[in-house]
Design a binder for these strands. Structure first.
Lengths: 126, 126
DNA sequence: CTTGACCTTGACACCGGCGTCAGGGATTAC
DNA sequence: GTAATCCCTGACGCCGGTGTCAAGGTCAAG
């Protein structure tokens, strides 16, 4: 399939696909007229990339997962490099959460000081 | 005082001070030679801006606080506009925390699937 | 032959808060 | 005089993942 079809099926823009290629995450055969040609495996790779991006991974983070899939593994997370990224991302996320919790407490304290009686509870907190 | 002294005392770069001015947060008198001149009140404003930036506010978020101080209030958070920003930031932070918690769970689940037995607990969690 | 839908590469725009360099002028000390 | 240290404005760079426009080539249908 060509880039337009892959884009539609993967739910991304053609711009994004070219960018992934430029970043070395996907490659494309070229037909005689210079058009990029993709197969079902490429769709799989793009789906993996999208899934990772939506949970906050960067394209660089996604690289081991793509390589893992290309190596024939059932999932992109099956390789030790991918597992290492998972763990790093977990610690990064935890760090961000801690930072936000501290900030939240600071802002809530400031609000309480400036506006006694103002509610400062988290939404959805019982 | 001139910009270099204010920068040193406030712990920011001169570039940052010019940027705050460009964004309309602070203003400066000009001496005959065109140099910016600041006073102690300006130092106070910059301190307020820095405090807000470090808890994740943008310069736009900081604007009501600066205005509040300039209006003669004891703290930048004493005005209703500032309180509104406090509350908005609290909901934004809460939203970010929720997003991160969801992501964390997703990543942890993926890791658990790819690497049975791998620890996925939050650091510092008992 | 022409229209239209597809494809190509290249490059600027965005967001935020600056860092940093270029190319000057001002002031003070020696 | 001149060196050192300050100041000025203007403008590009950064980061990440695109959106979007420019200016063209390709191909099938009518």
């Amino acid at each position: 399939m060509r880039i337009g079809e892959l884009a539609r099926r993967a739910g991304v823009s053609t711009r994004a696909l070219r960018y992934y290629e430029q970043q070395g995450l996907i490659t494309a055969r070229r037909s005689a007229n210079g058009y990029r040609e993709y197969d079902e495996d490429d769709l799989r790779l793009v789906a993996e990339i999208r899934a990772l991006l939506t949970v906050g991974f960067t394209l660089a983070d996604a690289e081991p997962f793509v390589a893992c899939l290309r190596a024939g593994n059932a999932t992109g997370g099956s390789c030790p490099e991918s597992v290492a990224v998972y763990r790093r991302k977990l610690t990064e996320i935890d760090e961000e959460i801690r930072t936000l919790l501290v900030r939240r407490a600071e802002v809530a304290a400031q609000l309480a000081g400036s506006c006694p009686g103002c509610p400062t509870g988290k939404q959805g907190e019982k």
